[in-house]
Structures are given as C-alpha cells and as structure tokens.
C-alpha cells in the first residue's frame, strides 16, 4: 500500500513568524524555530517532518507566501 509523504520548505528569511501555519497544520508538523532570521523573526520549520502529509494547508494560509510544498507517494 502506498503511503503519502509530504515535505515543506520555508523561505525562512521572508517568514514573519505569525504562526498561522502552525495552527493550520493537521498533523502538527510545524513549530517555531529557536533561531531568528535576519529581521529577528522566529521562523516556522518542520519540527516533526515524518508527520507531513503534503496537504499544503500551511502554504495556503501563509500570508507571506513563504511555504513551498512537496508530496510523494512512497511504496512501502
């Protein structure tokens, strides 16, 4: 049975750390980084990448359009 596996890339320099993506993620993949970007914002990152299903909810609600989403069907 094929398993869907997702991944996101956050443009950390453009992320403003609003956390809306974290709220929108159904599988609790995202969290705020301890580090900050060059504007001093904590940015969103995949804290729990194994759980990502590539649903793109995070990217859809991201006001700054900083999230790119990938998805692949993996053979078990």
């Amino acid at each position: 049975m094929a398993k869907v596996k997702g991944a996101v890339i956050v443009d950390t320099e453009r992320c403003k750390g609003c956390e809306v993506c974290i709220d929108a993620c159904p599988t609790d993949v995202l969290a705020m980084s301890k580090e900050v970007n060059s504007k001093g914002y904590h940015y969103s990152f995949m804290a729990n990448p194994d759980a990502c299903i590539g649903c793109a909810n995070c990217a859809i609600v991201c006001p700054d359009g900083v999230i790119t989403v990938y998805k692949k069907k993996l053979d078990q």
Binding site: K5, G6, G54, I67, T68, V69, Y70, K72
Partner: peptide, 15 residues
C-alpha cells in the same frame, strides 16, 4: 527521504 520528496515533480504548492 526529504531529498527524495523535495523535487520538481512532487511540487504541490508554490507561490
């Protein structure tokens, strides 16, 4: 695994 997923043909959302 991430490298495998993050490639052009698997793109589902981009600004």
């Amino acid at each position: 695994m991430l490298k495998d997923i993050i490639s052009e043909e698997n793109l589902v959302y981009k600004k």
